[in-house]
Nucleic acid binder design. Structure first.
Lengths: 192, 192
DNA sequence: CGGTCTCTTGACGGAGTTCAAAGCTAGTGG
DNA sequence: CCACTAGCTTTGAACTCCGTCAAGAGACCG
């Protein structure tokens, strides 16, 4: 059963007792085909997703209509527009499936009920957000102190599996540079 | 009593009952004078700080010895090297007082005990980390999609009080540009 | 008052962008 | 299954923003 992988993920971070398997009741399994959108900027969504299989990208669209990738998420990662989810605001991010994906979906009301009924989940999400803070801090440090080439090298080192599945165009957008620049950087690297 | 401001901060996010005021027992009041370091890169620290008064900067030092400011924190904010604190690693960030400051300090062991003894604090820190994720996401979006001028305008709009207390050199470092560039950007802005 | 640190200004150089064109790749429909 | 097309990647040339280096003016502290 697909839902099992979420349970395992939770158990990797906190201790569950037997009846806490009811946690899975708050979630629904959903499938999205490649290129479809889990969430679109400007819309209300109020769902968070736990990815069972496949890969998505989270991006913003700027005033000029350009897309900027914030993150790539795959198996055993949470994804969603957290601020929109928590604060009941319209989404500022869009989320698109890069591959066919299977996710567990939870809406905001169920999420609050779950936290209320199973206090151990407060700890689980405390740890989830804590880890998100770690990862984001690393990214911010790199954005203000690394050159584009250093950011690219760090990216392929940190996410060797993910790059196989993502176009360079999207990686360039993630790094904050143009596809042309990334192409030149890659050429420079393979030269050495 | 200084410790009161932490209690008020907690109560703004979660409900405390009377005996939960014992939470303050896990904390010590500490004073740091301007320019002194709460934490130095490469050292073990394992403390987190809640700022009662004053202002600090968090920064990293790169291979060339240049400092890059990650954040400025003042009254009623938590600050520390979270990753070092949680994972028992040496600090990758340094924290320096920009003004004379008063903080409440908690070490890792006390923090774990507090979370254990007062489960409501799991929720409190879940919310704290959640808010940190919001703020950092905004920063990442701006770093990959804004020009230096846009980042500066966004910074002074978001933190109008803080800029009064911080040198341009430090703001430039926060924005990921040189002091010279910031000086030119400011000149350009006042022209219009 | 002198020294250090900060801010400003100028000239130059370099990393990355923009625009354009050509080669490749992968998805689509016949 | 092949052919076609749209999108992706590469490459080139010109340009732009920002960094680097250097020098001078102003502010702060002992």
């Amino acid at each position: 059963m697909h839902k099992q992988s979420l349970l395992e993920h939770i158990k990797r971070h906190v201790d569950l007792n037997s009846n806490e398997k009811e946690i899975l009741n708050y979630f629904d399994i959903k499938l999205f085909s490649k290129k479809s959108f889990l969430l679109t900027e400007g819309k209300m969504s109020r769902c968070e997703y736990f990815i069972i299989s496949g890969c998505v990208r989270v991006f913003v669209t700027d005033n000029s209509g350009l897309e900027h990738n914030l993150s790539f998420n795959s198996e055993n990662w949470w994804v969603g527009d957290l601020k929109s989810f928590i604060k009941n605001e319209v989404a500022t991010y869009s989320i698109q499936a890069i591959e066919d994906i299977t996710v567990l979906q939870i809406n905001h009301k169920s999420w609050l009920n779950m936290l209320n009924d199973f206090p151990v989940m407060e700890k689980y999400f405390r740890i989830m957000f804590q880890n998100a803070v770690f990862a984001q801090q690393t990214r911010i440090v790199q954005s203000i102190s690394y050159t584009a080439e250093e950011r690219y090298l760090s990216f392929i080192k940190s996410y060797p599996k993910v790059i196989q599945r993502i176009s360079q165009k999207h990686i360039a957008s993630y790094l904050g540079i143009t596809p042309e620049s990334l192409s030149r950087i890659r050429k420079e690297i393979t030269k050495n």
